[in-house]
Amino acid sequence: MNEKNTLFNWFKLVLKRDLVLSFKKIATFMVPLVFFLIVITLFPLALGTEGSFLSTLSSGVIWVAALLASLLAVESIFNEDYRDGTLDQFLISGEPTFILVLAKVLAHWLVTGAPLLLASLISTFFLYLPEGLLFPLLISLLMGTFLLSLLGALGGALTIGKTAILSAVIVLPLSVPILILGVAVITSALNGQDFFSYLYFLGAMLAIGIPGLCLATTEAIFINYD
């Protein structure tokens, strides 16, 4: 087997394993989803049900809920594997840990981020999202939730063996730009401005974040090990 092929197989093995595992355990993708919808429901309960008011808040509320849901679900990335010894096995497999992190981030996004996109579709009806903002909302959430998965992986790796709330405290301040840019996309679309410039910036952050944050996560795993 040549080198490239082995790396890809390693990536595929981890990804497939994580996906199969989360389909076996419904909670892994149900809990963030339900959490998201509950948070969305809390806002009209707290702020009143006046349509125009809710519709101005809608994009921000959806974004905050998505942020919390995806950062609180980091438990499944490394902690469970650490507890049952699987992470040990991964690290001593002789395969690059960087690829492992990449596969785990992708799996985490597929399991939590992608369902959130669907749930946000439902929540646009709850919060009366203004017409024509669906596309900017979905595309900004698509890129934003992946960035959040990357950040969440870093937080999860730094707090291996600890609670998810600690990793949220560490990572939430760093996620401010993602939230601002994500909401900026929608706000500028609402004002009829060109929102692609913000999307490009989100894309640039993804391009730097995928290698950069995965590298930092790899380092964080090793810190927890020796």
Partner: peptide
Amino acid sequence: FYQGHQLALKNNF
């Protein structure tokens, strides 16, 4: 091959 104290088995599998 390494087998640690934790057996690296998943209950859900």
